[in-house]
Design a protein around this nucleic acid. Structure first.
Lengths: 189, 189
DNA sequence: CCTACCGATCGGTAGG
DNA sequence: CCTACCGATCGGTAGG
């Protein structure tokens, strides 16, 4: 790992733990074992670190969902099952970045913020569309509000970075399957 | 509204918008129209503001769920339906405080943090227990993981403060009913 | 990658 | 509720 990669890696841990504003460049430098001023040989500004974390992850979420779209599933259920699995795999592989992505994006400035919100809107839109398709094909309940159904899915997936820890007890494929069953069939016997 | 109440009210708005660390006492004073030093006639410290926001809301969540427990429902479904409704009503009535409660609690210090985490654990535990009861009575699927089912409910409710706005279009009772149907029956036709 | 430093801002206090 | 101020810390730069 180059020093530059190390700086970006350490920033994820620090921003998750203390928040973006609560993390100082001196904290970050200290965790690496150099002086704060030396960070600027690897990074233009503090915000560049935040932008990299957010947009690297957005790219991963996008690739994960494009893989699903490429399958051209006939059933909306299949699309959702696969999309949830791929999303949760990205979260599980990037727990710190996921927490930063969700909690610190509001400190992005100007264009970066716009770009970020665009991504979130587009990404959520794909779930809403999948659900609407499922309703039209009578695959899903016709009294469904696609907006709220999408929020149910996205909320649960987003929250995952707050509690999931790779500890060998449960793997993310199992969790994804169980969440999908909850979304599809609910808890009722 | 007394000045003291005004300070606490303004703190909710500011902490939600800029985060706890990102909000300065000078910002807060400026929004009210006084000098920063004058705030300390009404408040002991910045953290006292955060503690009040978090624990006032925790009290409201607790009262809301105690009302549900007092009903002594025979069905787990009824308990969950009513608990969700009461929880979401508190969120809808306290949108700013709810966002602060969820996003800024990590800046609580020492005992306050412990007390906060205790509350979250106890509160989540009541949902897990309700779900386990429902499974035992064959009201819910017996292959259910009560932990993940509770996370599904709590995630969706927690996320509400991020998107819900009282704008006359949808009232929280409708939303609560639709979320409950999603939790109970899922999206499947 | 470091030393030395900049102007700005922070939470909070003294004293009236 | 204000003026005046404290020591600490912030992101970042100059120059080597």
């Amino acid at each position: 790992m180059t020093r530059k990669e190390q700086v970006h890696q350490e920033a994820k841990l620090l921003f998750k733990e203390k928040g973006y504003i609560g993390s100082s460049m001196r904290d970050l430098a200290n965790n690496i074992g150099i002086e704060a001023s030396s960070l600027y040989n690897h990074v233009k500004s503090k915000e560049e670190l935040l932008q990299n974390i957010c947009f690297d992850l957005a790219d991963q979420f996008l690739k994960a969902i494009q893989e699903v779209n490429a399958q051209k599933y006939a059933n909306a259920s299949d699309w959702i099952r696969h999309a949830m699995l791929n999303h949760l795999k990205v979260v599980a592989d990037n727990l710190e970045a996921s927490a930063v992505f969700l909690n610190e994006w509001r400190f992005l400035s100007g264009d970066a913020m716009d770009k970020y919100l665009d991504f979130r809107k587009t990404y959520g839109g794909m779930y809403r569309t999948a659900i609407r398709n499922g309703v039209e094909k009578n695959e899903f309940r016709k009294d469904l509000n696609p907006n709220l159904a999408a929020i149910n899915i996205l909320s649960t997936m987003n929250w995952t970075s707050n509690w999931y820890q790779e500890n060998g007890k449960e793997n993310i494929e199992d969790i994804s399957k169980q969440f999908f069953d909850l979304i599809l069939k609910g808890i009722k016997a």
